[in-house]
Design a protein around this nucleic acid. Sequence first.
DNA 1: GTTAGCACTCTATAATTTTGAGTGCTAACA
DNA 2: TGTTAGCACTCAAAATTATAGAGTGCTAAC
Lengths: 347, 347
Amino acid sequence: MISEHGLSDRKLKILHAVIKNYLETGEPVGSRTISKYTDLNLSSATIRNEMADLEELGYIMQPHTSAGRIPSDKGYRLYVDMLMEEKEQELGELQEQMLDKADRMEQLLKQAARVLATNTNYATMVSTPMSSSNKIKFIQLSMVDEEQVIAVIVLGGNVIKNKIIRIEESLSNENLLKLNMLLNTTLNGMPIEEISLGLIARLKEQAGVHSGVISDVLDAVADAIQIDEDMQIYTSGTTNIFKYPELSDNQSAQEIINAFEEKQQLTELVTQTLAKEENTGIQVYIGDESPVQNMKDCSVVTATYELGDGMKGTIGIIGPKRMDYEHVLKSMKRLQNELDQMFHKKE
Amino acid sequence: MISEHGLSDRKLKILHAVIKNYLETGEPVGSRTISKYTDLNLSSATIRNEMADLEELGYIMQPHTSAGRIPSDKGYRLYVDMLMEEKEQELGELQEQMLDKADRMEQLLKQAARVLATNTNYATMVSTPMSSSNKIKFIQLSMVDEEQVIAVIVLGGNVIKNKIIRIEESLSNENLLKLNMLLNTTLNGMPIEEISLGLIARLKEQAGVHSGVISDVLDAVADAIQIDEDMQIYTSGTTNIFKYPELSDNQSAQEIINAFEEKQQLTELVTQTLAKEENTGIQVYIGDESPVQNMKDCSVVTATYELGDGMKGTIGIIGPKRMDYEHVLKSMKRLQNELDQMFHKKE
DNA sequence: GTTAGCACTCTATAATTTTGAGTGCTAACA
DNA sequence: TGTTAGCACTCAAAATTATAGAGTGCTAAC
């Protein structure tokens, strides 16, 4: 059977065998190994010929002459797309492990990252859910003392925002009540991206622009709503990369660890992941395909999970190119499901 | 001049020279080097005799016979306590660098960690301020919708706590008002450690224990106040440890990086630092002295900074034992001052 | 008390050899 | 025509040996 990649059945089998073996051992795979490992009943010499072809086609390569072959990025890609059989994974206790301490979402996500890292032996990350289109559910101003007002804003998915506002002249109870009325009637149920400067200006007018205090307060509220930098990223198992010699030299290790600490790049990864929308929501980046520069020598697997209200978050696994894709994809799917489930249960 | 450590002036000078040289080079220091390096005008042979004595006294040691000497922990300790002269450091642009993005405390602290790491070339951490004895400044319950109540609690230092409470039967406006009254009159100005189960029980009684809803809400409020897990720790420059060969072997690196990622141990460090109260608030842990197991091969320097209201936070530097103590202590003091200053300015 | 001198130690580095896995090619075979 | 045995060749990694050099401790003389 020949497919659009133009490889004979036999070549596919050999390629499969090479990759599978390499995933396990991390060592270049020789022809003799394949000859014995597969049920093709071919001599090493024949395998050698086929392997030479596969190399010419760009699916495998030699680290140096007279070494065995290792998969190229192209080879991995073919493997992930076509060759891999997803194995039925034993049902672990993911959920129970996680539910242990899962009284708060933050804790839950940290725990999720940790469980995933332990479970796969790769480095993992989990982002808190974010929404590009979230709605205001509730908004309220209260006096903390004579000089300070606190604004509390609850968004869809029960995301809470706070801002303490310092005021010069004190605000009468009456005015506060009016402001609260106004804010709620105007903003409640409104998607935050629709809150523009124009709207704020109109609000100020309605509130009576004569009062400087009210103006200040409204500015602060607008400000508080806008700030959506509150996506957190939890990481775990960064040091797992030391388990893979190809990543544990100082150069690569530093780059990866740095990306994990500074989080800037992970944020990038999350954004990209959320932007692309696939059917399953799971994506595999091999080597150069990765959106993150520092991970050229890794494979990155990402997935999105969903809360209600269009809130979405990302889970990610970073490991060597020769990662156990079967296991990883399976784990990803399960975690994805369980997060979905948990949050919907809560909802 | 002989001090309580019982070392002659000459021995002290030699020890000083050995340590100083080792701090710079990271290589064992030989007798000939000292002979030339110091102004003692002694031959290498004489130095050798003295060094043999110093070794016997435990201040220096040989990695192997026929190698130069390196300082022991005891040697470092003597150096930090007595030998070191604090050099006048060129005034950097710490403050300006930090103020750049310092619109929010969180950002400011992240930035502080980053600046410190760049400035010293070691790994750094900064904890958000915490208070063991904080007071409630403001407390309020509001209805988000028919099923949910949000509790907002503001503590001293403007620490804000939120909790969303799901309720079965809806709460009348009247009852809500009463509850708010009660909470504020009872709890306002109260140190959180004084909020006991007994107090909560009494509150419930006053509120009218007949209503299950009220009981639930009060429990949730008590819960929200208690949770003080919200100390965050920001780290930066973890990968700096790779600059020091003695820490960059896989074993040590993994342990340190892990401590930095999991933060559990750093929390421990912060707690310990805040507990001990020294005059300057700066502490130096050398090797085994460190409260953190994973940092036996490092030196750790910590300092506390203060906000008003008894809120305290910690800054920390982790590096090799042969760290540039003079520079580090100087940088620490400056950062400590500037944080103090900034927060008090804001207050 | 200080120092020059010397034999000795030990590491680090370089140079060399050995080993073994793996290849490509050729010629023979079914 | 596809498959295979055989062989010369390549190369990295491991083992071995040689070399250099920094530094010590000790002794004897100043």
